[in-house]
Design a protein around this nucleic acid. Sequence first.
DNA 1: TGCGCTTAAATCGTGTACGATACAAAGGAA
DNA 2: TTCCTTTGTATCGTACACGATTTAAGCGCA
Lengths: 137, 137
Amino acid sequence: MLCFDIYAANHAFARVYKPLLDPLGLTYPQFLVMLVLWAEAPLSVGTIGKRLGLSSNTLTPLLKRLAQTGYVTRRRDGADERRVQVDLTESGAALRERADHVQQCATRATGMSLEDMQALQDQLQRLSAHLLESGRA
Amino acid sequence: MLCFDIYAANHAFARVYKPLLDPLGLTYPQFLVMLVLWAEAPLSVGTIGKRLGLSSNTLTPLLKRLAQTGYVTRRRDGADERRVQVDLTESGAALRERADHVQQCATRATGMSLEDMQALQDQLQRLSAHLLESGRA
DNA sequence: TGCGCTTAAATCGTGTACGATACAAAGGAA
DNA sequence: TTCCTTTGTATCGTACACGATTTAAGCGCA
């Protein structure tokens, strides 16, 4: 079963990342949120959720922990008081360099060439698109 | 990032399976455990864990829920009282037919040919093996 | 026989995930 | 304006996932 192998690969990645992320004070999902913010910040809770496929019920407590750790700030958008803008702190932005090293370690751990990795990513993206599409039908 | 795409694909699968599994009274992880048991039963808690990469701290409550639903039984192994043998009930074994239909729906939802799917599974299995290997080094 | 080491489950605390719901702010129609 | 609907977060309850610890059952060896 394909779902089985993806489940296993996801676990395997989480296990590779955990010892690398522990010194940074990040969990694996928190790291994924930071990846999104390093690419573009500030972002609203909802926008982060769209990028990761998560909703506020998961993100709100996660972001509160990131804020408590001191990597992000959360404040109401002045223009639209419904929105909460999440931004990087200086400390959160500075973490990016150390995170790059984490990525390199993780990439090495896959044992794959960059071309194979890119091909696999393309396949997975097509797969996800198909699965989500069929969910709406 | 590859980890990102695998994370997304795993979520996408969970979302496809949820509406299919709800009528069966199973969650996605519970379904994975049932897959293992349908392939071979009875099995000890530890053996199920090896197949799925989970330990007793996750499996014990999950198996208790499966037992409460009436799909499995849990009893101490007479030969080795440390072990708990998990076996299918009549109802749990009978569920297999309905589950086959779920698998067909999910397979269709991938939008992939059987050959492509097999190739992707092989890649993922090699990837997981590499990741787990590098974790021990 | 007895002592210690290992192994198998269970338990505990923390942190995701998610459906359902609540609630306040925004935006529109009468 | 007033009401109604939509939108963006937050909250609640249930169910994984996992590190750390606990407990009990084998097992080995002096």
